[in-house]
């Protein structure tokens, strides 16, 4: 068993004409929390979907546990997905099921455990995200932050080997934020899971990540342990970590010059 859980090699991917990744490489080490940070719209969600095999890269390899995800057959891909799990940015709870049934869903699908055992597992998972009392609510009755936590409980229901968190902290109050930070760390340490965390929340991410990748402009612009990154001399890295609006990384989606567009009548 190699030390690298996910190995992305020379990845290129484009959405239509819009090139998102250009010859990008990164490694996720087994049993560690790896954070991916970058400006909004840079393709972080896309990257997680590429790892999950929902999108196919135009070039490059994505090795998950030694298997090249884009090259897998449908059956093998589904087999590989049983070992990973993803917390979607939107939560993606099944709207026609209660919170309890949502968390029980992957267990019922992939195991033949008895209902009483499932009951115990689900309640444990819900307790860990602080939603045991909300088990009979429907997803429509949850707040955005609660929905995210319910989805987190579902993502960890089967104790996968790799968990990908897409923006786990967005929309959480400071207390539940702290709970989730601790949860990610505990899952990682206690169960030896591998985690990929995508987030903008620099302080939280820096506090739990073992290794950080900064992504911008179609490739990795900086990587290292949080300590190393803070010491990094690159202007791009410092701008992102300190949250300055205009620096080396443009805040705006690429467009024509502002003044020109305001002056010119629209065609």
């Amino acid at each position: 068993m190699s030390d690298i859980m996910v190995d992305i090699q020379h990845l290129s991917f484009s959405r239509g004409k819009n090139l998102i990744y250009d010859d990008m490489s990164m490694q996720v080490r087994r049993g560690k929390v790896t954070a991916i940070m970058g400006p909004s719209g840079i393709g972080k969600t896309t990257l997680l979907k590429l790892i999950g095999g929902q999108l196919k890269p135009s070039q490059g390899h994505i090795l998950f546990d030694g298997q090249d995800i884009p090259a897998l057959s449908r059956a093998d891909l589904y087999q590989a997905r049983k070992k990973m799990s993803m917390l979607f940015q939107s939560g993606a709870l099944f709207t026609e099921m209660s919170v309890f049934d949502n968390v029980a869903f992957p267990i019922r699908e992939h195991t033949r455990l008895s209902e009483s055992l499932i009951n115990i597992i689900v309640l444990m998972k819900l307790e860990s995200v602080g939603l045991r009392g909300a088990r009979d609510l429907m997803p429509a009755e949850l707040s955005g932050g609660m929905a995210r936590r319910a989805a987190l409980a579902r993502a960890i229901a089967l104790d996968p080997e790799l968990i990908m968190y897409d923006e786990p902290f967005a929309g959480q109050d400071p207390i539940s934020m702290g709970v989730i930070v601790r949860l990610i760390k505990e899952l990682n340490n206690a169960l030896g899971l591998t985690s990929i965390v995508v987030s903008h929340d620099v302080t939280e991410v820096m506090s739990i990540a073992d290794y950080v990748y900064l992504v911008a402009e179609k490739k990795v612009i900086g990587h290292g342990t949080p300590e190393q990154l803070r010491q990094d001399k690159s202007a791009l890295v410092q701008q992102f970590l300190l949250g300055e609006a205009d620096g080396a990384v443009p805040f705006h989606y690429k467009a024509a010059a502002y003044e020109d567009e305001l002056m010119e009548p629209r065609r």
């Binding site: 993803m86 099944f94 699908e109």
Partner: peptide
């Protein structure tokens, strides 16, 4: 998508 990622 979520279902697919849960290998269902």
């Amino acid at each position: 998508s979520g279902m697919e990622m849960m290998a269902v």
